[in-house]
Design a protein around this nucleic acid. Structure first.
Lengths: 361, 361
DNA sequence: GTACCAAGGACGATGTGGAGG
DNA sequence: TCCTCCACATCGTCCTTGGTA
């Protein structure tokens, strides 16, 4: 009967181990926590007993006593977005390698959801938090829960985006890839380059917009405000951007478009397909974030790739080994422009007339 | 000085609340846990004090005492796979709505990683586990940790796949969409239909293979073993499948192919593109799992869609309200065949000769 | 004086037996 | 008698105190 798995007896406690080893609980605790003040005799006895009883310390009791939970919280806007999926995968993997468990939550790109999710993670006393934040701190109703995290002394690292006025370590994508892309378009003779931008409420949206303007400015080109459509990083706003750009009078339409994130690019490409716009003859296209799908498209879509797995690793390092006060707290992860078939020389579209105008909004 | 957030004072405890309300800790506990044996006087006092002190019960202490952690574990093969990303999103969202936090982990499609990840989740005393499992229970080295979960009495639900011999509630995709797809191909006159299958070690792989064979059988067609390539659900094996099918002698090549999951379809489509195979003229293509990318391809890829979000919701329900012993414990989620442009009548490929053979393995 | 170790008190919330009105 | 409440013990671990050899 002892062989049969009939009795799901309760897991062994430290007291059981101590009894089996013939020492006190304190000694057993010391041995198992690597405290050197132990004799080799008791060390052996305790180790053997622990192994035999399959002892695993109760994390809740340990947490109650030591206020360390061996867990981190990860808050991202949307797990379904492969961009954040990659980030989550990387963070979780590296955390697991260090014996930490990851409590995950999604804000769905909403401020109120972020607040409740953050409170839930905080209530579980995570040892640290990695957050892809929502909202601006200087807006009327800002990310108060983020302030609460800092105030409670919970280590916090921002990833992918920053929040103005919140001075915590952060890792964000650089804008070098976007600059390279615009320069390449300029070199190919494009004079009317459009941008389907991210929201100005997001640091990523703002920085990419600035880098775009700066690249045009450096080349002596005058940006046309009508060629910039501010979206919200969702597919629908990519469609809207296309509708608006194609709705411009023929002479003012763009010959190239840069799209500031993957989901908007998916929406934009679908809309371009439906309208029969030929890529790259009618329009050159560059997308930020390199989705698998872009390699399958015909022609393959030129993209600006981020190494998100690296960003996750950096975020965890920033969390576990925070930079000193005098060190740089914001890490910028380089991005890489990958030229594929969706970009061509300017001027081709003048020879074709298949591009219909009209706005179906 | 009291206004300033200078002192990050420790969070209020139940003792503090009781003191502020002028009652004992026991009474405060009762009020806050909704125990009816309380007077309205103390109820008011305690509620007010708790609100004023911003009291949140310490989950570790509560867990230590009541052995409930208000957390569930979620183990999936790969967060980056949008299929499992959707599942994770759904599970996490519904768990959060019920006040539960989700501990996530990835097995990377490896048995040993699954084992260590499961032990880590178990060591945190989750109230239940939702697992997309790896490995067969009847193989030499099986998923022992899954047995350990059951043995320790932790509620367990399998999602997406099953494990033979493990009798726990499960929710898996149905095969009706695959059957519909094969029937449609047969109706279009296709006589040589290939399958890039999933691994036989996975219940999903086995079931789709069976459904494929059954559909052919029902139509009186004789399956050709050479037209079935067993992959491993990864993009590389999709490429291999294409290479092998195109390497067949011209007369034995397929006129249509069904691919048993999204990642393999991505690999297969990329390989078909590179080899200049025209879809659907040279080859009709149907992919299991409806990726966003498939709508962007030219032509858009016909797909078999799963409602994974629903599967996540069902999994959580199975976990929190387990079916009685005499009830059905395996839920099959219907799938939907979506006809798009990548499928055409059979016979078209005979009129073209662009399809080159050769195997570059 | 220098190892080691046993005993006991936190940590914070929850259930019990018993006392008060 | 019944309803409300209080003091106390408990969960498993870690850390401090006070010894003993």
């Amino acid at each position: 009967m002892a062989q049969l798995p009939s009795t799901p007896r309760p897991p062994a406690t430290l007291r059981d181990v101590a009894a089996a080893a013939g020492v006190s609980v304190a000694t057993a605790s010391r041995v198992l926590s690597g405290n050197p003040a132990t004799s080799s005799t008791s060390r052996q006895a305790v180790t053997a007993a622990a192994a035999q009883l399959d002892f695993h310390p109760n994390v809740q009791a340990r947490a109650l006593r030591s206020s360390r939970t061996a867990s981190i919280g990860l808050l991202i806007p949307d797990i379904r977005n492969p961009h954040f999926g990659d980030l989550a995968h990387s963070v979780e993997m590296h955390a697991r390698e260090r014996g930490l468990v990851t409590l995950i939550s999604a804000s769905d790109e909403r401020l109120d959801t972020q607040e409740t999710a953050l409170r839930l993670l905080m209530s579980h006393n995570v040892d640290g938090l990695i957050v892809v934040p929502q909202g601006r701190r200087d807006s009327p109703r800002g990310p108060e829960a983020l302030d609460a995290v800092v105030q409670r002394g919970i280590p916090l690292v921002l990833a992918d985006r920053m929040v103005s006025g919140l001075d915590v370590p952060a890792v964000v994508p650089g804008t070098n890839g976007l600059t390279d892309a615009v320069n390449e378009l300029l070199a190919l003779g494009h004079e009317r380059i459009a941008l389907i931008a991210g929201p100005a409420t997001s640091s990523t949206g703002r920085e990419r917009r600035l880098a775009f303007d700066a690249a045009l400015d450096a080349a002596g080109a005058t940006p046309d405000p009508d060629l910039v459509h501010e979206g919200d990083f969702q597919p629908a706003s990519g469609r809207e951007g296309v509708a608006r750009l194609l709705g411009l009078p023929p002479g003012r339409r763009p010959s190239a478009v840069v799209i500031a994130d993957g989901p908007m690019a998916v929406g934009a490409l679908a809309a371009l397909n439906e309208r029969g716009v030929r890529i790259p003859q009618d329009l050159s296209v560059v997308a930020h974030d390199d989705l698998d799908a872009f390699r399958l498209c015909d022609p393959p879509v030129s993209a600006i790739a981020q190494d998100i797995a690296a960003m996750g690793a950096v975020a965890l390092n920033l969390l576990l080994e925070p930079p000193a006060d005098d060190e740089e707290r914001t890490v910028r992860q380089p991005t890489l422009f990958i030229q594929r078939g969706s970009v061509a020389e300017a001027g081709l579209q003048k020879s074709t007339t298949t591009m219909e105008g009209g706005d179906d909004s």
